[in-house]
């Protein structure tokens, strides 16, 4: 398997210390929580991303994030990487995060690019869900 050390480390840290790496769930019904779930079991990966936000002035800031991912090692590493990028960002800043940022951070091999695309889709969907509630 052509995985970079970064993917392997991120994967191992995430499964060994799930709480520290934001594995978990929020109640999706809470008004300050946005949930995104993308992928399909038959395709081999499903990502569920939840953001908890706080309004600050005329913007909203991501205070906390939880995620769960079913998928290969780089899918799990990609979502974990994304989660770290999100905390403390405004929604506008979060929308700017592109899959290529994750590809670069983890040195994903070409065959695993779709994992980063999925991660980008999950944050888009979570923000959309949150914004609809406001």
């Amino acid at each position: 398997m052509a995985y970079s050390k970064k993917v392997v480390d991120k994967f191992e840290n995430t499964i060994n210390e799930p709480a520290k790496y934001n594995v978990g769930r929020f109640d999706p019904k809470e008004m300050n929580v946005g949930t995104g779930m993308v992928g399909a079991p038959a395709c081999g990966d499903v990502m569920k991303l939840q953001i908890k936000c706080e309004s600050q002035g005329n913007t909203h800031v991501i205070k906390d994030v939880k995620f769960k991912t079913y998928g290969c090692g780089s899918a799990i590493a990609s979502s974990s990487e994304l989660v770290e990028m999100l905390i403390g960002k405004t929604l506008e800043e979060a929308k700017e995060i592109k899959n290529i940022d994750i590809v670069k951070a983890l040195e994903l091999p070409p065959i695993k690019i779709h994992c980063s695309v999925l991660a980008e889709d999950s944050i888009k969907q979570a923000i959309e869900d949150y914004e609809q509630k406001q």
Binding site: M1, C72, A75
Partner: peptide
């Protein structure tokens, strides 16, 4: 549990 991640673990 996805197989490739299990093998990695």
């Amino acid at each position: 549990v996805e197989g490739e991640s299990l093998i990695m673990a």
